[in-house]
Structure formats: structure tokens, C-alpha cells
Design a protein around this nucleic acid. Structure first.
Lengths: 206, 206
DNA sequence: CACCCCATCCTCCGAAAGGGGGATGGAGGG
DNA sequence: CCCTCCATCCCCCTTTCGGAGGATGGGGTG
């Protein structure tokens, strides 16, 4: 006897996925898909228009991507619960989503029952995490993030630049470049530029 | 008046995507989805059972992945046309799929009409490529592949190992390590180990 | 006002990396 | 049979890295 079905919005840039999700909630009595969007800007507009209770959102999208959309969405409508539904469970993605204040984080291999449950739980104020995401949140030692300037240096390292070239490019001395890199190594727990770029890429920092 | 509708099989490890694809072909008169599979092994079994004309297949799957499945599928049933439908258009993925003999390569952001067209074209013996894939195939200068041994060295470089450590690990002299790396640099068009690992990762070699 | 982080700069120094040559034996293809 | 690729090794030499130790000024924040 749900007088008011739960209003759900779907945000994903892939038509296939949007259709799949819509189909998965098609015959669910207490949940109604009231809107679809293919990027962050569309999501904001549709949220204003249709006032969903829960939003299922992909993170990687063209234009305004998931995290940006979540931040703006929560600023405009703090009562809307956002559940991330994505293919990736990398540290960087999970961390950014958590920081943006999501109610759940699921992976796209989730079966339909789990999605139904997640939407209901989120609407009720609960939190839902995919198992691998939960463990990712546990097992992190410190997660020291390089500063913006340090990342700038690291990006040039990833392109194969020598310290001297980096110094010229960034208009600083080679000594400073070395200092930045020393700090990057410490923060990423490595001791070579090759390992540093690998770790940074894996964490989604580059 | 299609006496025989086109038989289509869907292979993807994400339930959401399978449902979405099924829905996209639901009201298409001349195409019938006769099977679904969530990994390569299941795909082979279902293909034998249902004899599809066209297979829509993801590349990244647990167990037997897309390329392996395509190879075996084409060995067993050369008449089946395989269309790859994936999120990624990296050089390595495209190249491997092409080598396996696919009839098409589409990205998951393709609209439904394009999917319909692709399936029909493939069944008729034609080829379908997403625009970005087509251009990826054009713009490649030579694509010198490092040898197996060279890649083995590069993998250790990516872990941050020094040449001396790599030499010990692979039971060869440091000189040989440097020679291998020199060749890797030349083949990848770089001049530092940091850039080499980045290029290798982007090409899916690591 | 302390305190910490960031960005910038410094010296000294040994160890690593990378570029230039060249050499060998074996496998595979035309 | 020749030629190419691979894997292995050698010399020499210059440049670059990376470690260790600092220092300075500027922003924030408690």
C-alpha cells in the first residue's frame, strides 16, 4: 500500500545502461523512474523539474561528471540521496564520491535485487556499499595526497621530462623540482619516478 | 515479412547492460535475442545451444574474456558474426579484437539505432566501426611491440626496480637489462623509464 | 601567536641511468 | 643460405637521479 512510490532518477551517459536500469525498475511497485539524464548538467535540470527521492548516478560522464553533479545536487537539494553506480572501484573514485556525500556506492555488476534494495535503503536514510568498495575504505594506510604543484611536476615526469626540463617548463629551479619529487615519493611510498607515475595512475591522480 | 528473424546473443557480465540491450531489441521485429551470457565460457555453451547469427560481446569480463571467447567462438562456428560492444577504445583492445576477427567494434555510448544497424550490417557480412575506433586504426605509425623479455623487464621497472635489482630478479646481467630497456625506449618512442611505463600502460601492455 | 603545509631555494655526493659503440649464438623466414 | 629478430653480454662516457642535510617566506587554522 505505498501511496507514494519512491521517485528515482537515473543518470548515465550510456543509453544501454539507462534502458537496462529503467527495465530493472519497471515492474517494481514501490519505485518509479521519474527522470533520466545523460550527464551532470541534465541531471541538475531534471532534478529540479521532477524532485526525485533517490538518484542513481554514474561517475564517469562527459561534461559535468558525477562528482561535480553530486556536489551541486546536494547543495541545491540536500534531501536527495545519491547512489553511485559505476564500473570502477579505484581508490580515487571512491574517495571523491565519499567526500561528495553519497548514500551508496555500487558496481555495475550488481544484480537487480541489490539495486532495488539499495534504492530503498538510501531513501530510508541508510548507506549501501559494494563489498569491494567497503574493503577499499578499510584498507587504507594514510592516503597522503600530493599537493597541486607536486602533481604538476609528476605529470611532466610521466611525459618523460627530465628535472631540468621540468624546471624550465614550470619556471622554477631544478632544486625545487627535486624537492617536489622527493615529497611525492614519500607520499606515494615509492623511491623512483617510474614507480611514482604507476602509483599515481592507479590512484587516478594523473 | 522476415520469415526468419535474426538470432542475436548478448554477452556481458553486467546484468544492467544485458537488460538494457535486451530491451533495446525487444520491439525490433527482425531481430530476436535468443541467448544471454555473462562470461566467455557461458557464451560458448549458449552459442552451441542456440546457434545465433550475431553475437554482441563485451571485451572485459571475468573468467574467459572477450578476445578468448571470440577466438574459440570463431573456431567452432566461423559463420557467427561477432560485434564488440565495450566502453574502451584503447589501442590494445582494438588491436586484439581486430586480430580475433570481429565484424564490428562499437562503444557503449552508441544509441539504439546504431546498435540495430550494426547487428543487421554484421549479419549481412558487413563491418561496423565506431568513429573513434576507425580513427584509432588509421593513425598508427608503426606500433613496434616490445618482445616478451623486454616487457618482463619493463614490468619490473613499473614496480620501481633499479636495473641492478631487475638483473638479479631475471638472472641476467645489468648490461642486458640496459640493452632491453634501450630497445623498449626505441620501440615506444620515449627516452625515459617513467615515460615508457606510461606509454606501455596506455597501450595495455602492462 | 604558534603551528603546519606549501612552494621555493641551497650544497654535497654517490649511485643510477642513458647514449654511443660493438659482439655472439640461436631461431625463424624467404 | 642470408637476413632479421631475439637474448645475452661487453666497453666507455656523460648526464641525471635520488638521498641527506638544511633554509626561507607565505598562507591558513586552531
Amino acid at each position: 500500500m505505498p501511496a507514494d512510490p519512491l521517485k528515482l532518477m537515473i543518470v548515465d551517459d550510456h543509453p544501454v545502461v539507462r534502458d537496462g536500469l529503467r527495465g530493472m525498475f519497471d515492474h517494481v511497485a514501490d519505485i518509479e523512474v521519474v527522470a533520466e539524464a545523460s550527464d551532470g548538467f541534465e541531471a541538475l535540470a531534471m532534478a529540479r523539474k521532477t524532485g526525485p527521492h533517490v538518484v542513481l548516478m554514474d561517475l564517469r560522464m562527459p561534461g559535468l561528471d558525477g562528482v561535480g553533479a553530486i556536489q551541486r545536487l546536494r547543495a541545491d537539494h540536500p534531501e536527495i540521496k545519491v547512489v553511485v553506480l559505476t564500473t570502477y572501484d579505484t581508490d580515487a573514485d571512491v574517495a571523491r564520491a565519499m567526500a561528495a556525500g553519497v548514500a551508496g556506492y555500487l558496481l555495475k555488476d550488481a544484480p537487480r535485487e541489490e539495486l532495488h534494495r539499495a534504492v530503498r535503503t538510501a531513501a530510508a536514510g541508510g548507506a549501501v556499499l559494494a563489498p569491494s568498495v567497503a574493503s577499499a575504505l578499510m584498507s587504507r594506510p594514510a592516503a597522503q595526497e600530493p599537493s597541486p604543484r607536486e602533481l604538476e611536476v609528476l605529470r611532466l615526469v610521466a611525459r618523460g621530462s627530465a628535472n631540468k626540463e621540468i624546471a624550465r617548463a614550470l619556471l622554477i629551479s631544478e632544486t625545487t623540482v627535486k624537492t617536489h619529487l622527493k615529497h611525492v615519493f614519500a607520499k606515494l611510498g615509492v623511491d623512483s619516478r617510474a614507480a611514482a607515475v604507476v602509483v599515481a595512475m592507479e590512484r587516478g591522480l594523473l
